[in-house]
């Protein structure tokens, strides 16, 4: 079994209202100078065959039309 972490984020150019909402909230809490906030998902898993992770991401974990994914083997 190998452990992996998959990071999924909205594609560049797709409006991410969650990221915008976080960004707008920060100055009110005294955190100035933070921008380009993007909110995504993280999936941790253990796989027998890590070579198949990309296929798994394409078919289920991410929607390639709207999301990018990044696989990190741990």
């Amino acid at each position: 079994m190998s452990r992996a972490r998959v990071l999924i984020r909205p594609k560049e150019g797709i409006l991410d209202p969650q990221g915008k909402a976080v960004e707008r909230a920060l100055p009110a809490l005294g955190f100035e100078g933070v921008e380009h906030v993007r909110v995504g998902r993280m999936v941790e898993l253990e796989a027998d065959d890590p070579a198949r992770l990309a296929e798994l991401c394409e078919k289920l974990l991410a929607n390639p039309l709207i999301e990018d994914y990044e696989i990190q083997t741990l």
């Binding site: 797709i14 409006l15 209202p17 969650q18 909402a21 929607n63 039309l65 709207i66």
Partner: peptide, 16 residues
């Protein structure tokens, strides 16, 4: 859309 029977995708409403 997820099944690929229709083009496109549905995202979170712009005002959340």
């Amino acid at each position: 859309c997820e099944a690929g029977l229709l083009p496109g995708a549905l995202l979170r409403n712009v005002e959340l």
